[in-house]
Amino acid sequence: MNEQGDEKGIVLTEAQKRARRSRSIAIAVSLVALVVLFYVMTLVKGPMVLVRPI
């Protein structure tokens, strides 16, 4: 009985699931934006992307 309870663990409520989903989408969008930013900056700078003057 106890083991069965442990197996079940914490069950998320609908509100918690919605909040988690919205956070996951925001993280995904941020990561895609970061990839696009690096891609565009590489196109813009060309070989100079490796040169970082102080």
Binding site: I10, Q16, S22
Partner: peptide
């Protein structure tokens, strides 16, 4: 981690309700 339950101050921490 969720099914194990995260310990916080000796109690099980509630899953986050934080929105974006």
């Amino acid at each position: 981690l969720i099914s194990e339950g995260a310990e916080f101050n000796g109690t099980i921490a509630e899953p986050s309700l934080a929105t974006v």
